[in-house]
């Protein structure tokens, strides 16, 4: 079992798991954002790898991917940022969020060599469904790496049971159909769905897709073990792109995003880890 997941994720019910795109807008900004997110109580970080054809993502993350790709970000380069985060004090697990094609091109062997060298803890491949992931589940196990599985409101009971049985790290509950992106409301059936997942999952259940307001976090808190926040944070980053790119204004830009995060996850009343 992965030690960082054991310490920061296992058995908790107040998980805050933010998603940022590696290299959006620069490598240095990504490092500073990761450290800030840890200070604000993040239990793990999803490090998104920019991709030309992100099928599961909405416009906000698509634009972030384009920004990061313009600076030549790649899966390997993103994985090589993690040791720099660790040197500067990042203790929480880092989950590499990558589309399958990028992983295929890097190769399994090279990927896990980088996982070991760079202290990476998890992998999430949004377009690798359960039926196609057996080989990767095995190699993740051998490398102490959590392979984060997703379940959706349309996932059948049969598949849900199979997925929950094999899931590691935390189980990612997709709040709604469609792509990532902020939503003002959740469909009422979502809460029944989360209950169903909770009853089957031996590991923490976190909900993502569309989480963008403290009211949502407060409501979800009653039903599951945490929230995954992607587009809402990436949108904040987008609004601060200029500030984040310029060294003199970086701290100020980060603090803008920090106050948004503080407000968003206020229902969790988190103790800060590093401050």
């Amino acid at each position: 079992m992965n030690k960082r997941f054991e310490k920061h994720v296992d058995g908790r019910s107040d998980l805050f798991i933010p998603f940022i795109v590696a290299g959006d807008p620069t490598e240095e900004a990504t490092i500073k954002l990761a450290l800030m997110l840890q200070e604000e109580g993040a239990n793990a970080i999803e490090l998104g790898i920019p991709y030309s054809d992100p099928l599961a993502d909405g416009p906000v993350i698509q634009r972030a991917s384009i920004r990061a790709l313009e600076h030549g970000m790649s899966l390997e380069k993103a994985m090589n940022i993690v040791p720099k985060m660790r040197e500067r004090g990042l203790e929480i697990p880092v989950i590499v969020f990558t589309y399958y094609n990028l992983l295929l091109q890097l190769g399994e062997e090279r990927f896990f060599a980088l996982v070991r060298e760079n202290n990476i803890d998890g992998l999430l491949v949004p377009d690798l469904p359960f039926e196609e992931s057996e080989e990767w589940r095995e190699s993740c196990k051998m490398n102490d790496t959590a392979l984060i599985s997703l379940v959706a409101p349309t996932t059948s009971d049969k598949r849900l049971t199979a997925i929950a049985k094999e899931a590691t790290g935390f189980l990612y509950c997709v709040s709604s159909l469609g792509v990532t992106g902020t939503r003002t409301d959740f469909h009422s059936s979502v809460f029944e769905f989360i209950d169903r997942v909770k009853s089957l999952s031996p590991i923490p259940v976190a909900v993502g897709f569309g989480v963008s307001a403290p009211e949502q976090v407060a409501k979800l808190k009653e039903y599951c073990d945490g929230v995954i926040v992607g587009s809402a944070i990436v949108r904040q980053i987008e609004a601060q792109v200029d500030g984040l790119t310029n060294e003199e204004t970086q701290v100020e830009a980060i603090d803008h995003i920090r106050s948004y995060i503080r407000d968003l996850i206020s229902p969790y009343e988190k103790l800060k880890i590093n401050t």
Partner: peptide
Amino acid sequence: QRGRYGRFGGKYVPETAMYALE
């Protein structure tokens, strides 16, 4: 059965699309 033509094909889609394909 898995939609494979030799090593090609398959279903590499987000979980949200799996129900639609089934």
